[in-house]
């Protein structure tokens, strides 16, 4: 009996050793990330860099996570301290303390769905898993996923012990990164109160569509949108100005493919578009010029255009 127990122990130990040394397949990694995602808990600070039309933007977020719930906040010394973000049940709730408004938007793609992206890529053999550089002083597995049809390259660094994404970037070509984040510090032993994941009960709920209407009014533009249907959802909106022309921008995604809709007062201005992997469709309607940009075929963009309503 003693000998048998000892042998089992040795085998378990050696098995654990081989597991620690081997690099998992993309499918195995996806399964481990999914399992860990249900139970993992941590406090972290992460740095985010996003390329925008005004140049690169870098900022830092404080992250609390418990299972599939996330709470994001910003340092009190920053202009963004007024906001708190809650990611719960596949939706992102952005609470603004100063006006007690809670903006709700669906989450499509992103960190919490990494395992789905990996599992899909594994089926298409479009993924490479190796040992990665340390991130926040923690050992990682490195994953590179080349999207089909030239949509971009995902690079993901995953904690070897906890199976949490510690660093991630997205590039439109093999080297041109347009956004990403990197965990700077992380504490997996943090004790986090469940109250951190609850927003104020009396906050005024505002949808992205509400924001489109508000911004359109502000810019004296018709609030033209693609109606919600199935998986495709409006996830964000904003305004921008180019050459004195106010533009209402909307961003839609089904989690995999992306679509931007720009609405402005009718213009004959020449516009040149140059970006690999996307198509553009421009048309005029009701005194407005509308432009769709997305990783869809021209025929698909025309179909979306026919659905746009005020």
């Amino acid at each position: 009996m003693r000998i048998r127990s000892g042998l089992i122990g040795v085998l378990l130990g050696l098995g654990g050793l081989s597991l620690a040394q081997s690099v998992p397949t993309a499918s195995e990694l996806a399964a481990r990330i999914e399992r860990a995602g249900k139970t993992v808990s941590y406090a972290a600070v992460r740095s985010i860099t996003i390329r925008s039309e005004r140049g690169n933007r870098t900022f830092e977020e404080r992250v609390l996570r418990s299972g599939d719930k996330m709470y994001l906040s910003y340092d009190s010394g920053t202009p963004y301290a007024d906001q708190q973000i809650y990611e719960v049940g596949g939706k992102r709730y952005t609470y603004t303390k100063s006006n007690n408004e809670l903006r709700v938007a669906p989450i499509r793609g992103g960190g919490l769905e990494t395992y789905k992206l990996l599992a899909e890529a594994a089926k298409k053999s479009a993924v490479k898993v190796t040992r990665g550089d340390a991130v926040a002083s923690r050992a990682t597995f490195f994953v590179e996923i080349a999207s089909d049809r030239g949509r971009g390259t995902h690079r993901i660094w995953i904690d070897r012990e906890k199976y949490v994404v510690l660093k991630r970037s997205f590039a439109v070509s093999s080297s041109e990164e347009i956004g990403g984040f990197e965990v700077l510090k992380i504490d997996f032993s943090a004790k986090i109160s469940s109250s951190k994941f609850k927003w104020p009960a009396k906050a005024k709920l505002i949808t992205v569509q509400d924001d489109v209407r508000r911004l359109a009014k502000e810019l004296s533009i018709k609030p033209m949108m693609i109606p919600d249907s199935g998986k495709m959802a409006l996830v964000s909106t904003g305004k921008m100005e180019v050459r004195g022309q106010n533009i209402l921008r909307q961003f839609y995604t089904d989690g995999e493919r992306r679509l931007s809709l720009f609405v402005m007062k009718q213009t004959d201005a020449e516009m040149r578009f140059s970006m690999r992997g996307v198509e553009v469709h421009r048309w005029n309607s009701g005194g407005m010029t509308l432009i769709l940009i997305g990783d869809y075929s021209e025929a698909e963009l025309k179909k979306f255009a026919s659905r746009v309503k005020a």
Partner: peptide, 16 residues
């Protein structure tokens, strides 16, 4: 407009 589309694409892709 392309830069704005890229910016939103990057944010959705990495979940921020």
């Amino acid at each position: 407009l392309i830069a704005a589309h890229q910016s939103d694409t990057a944010q959705v892709s990495v979940g921020v």
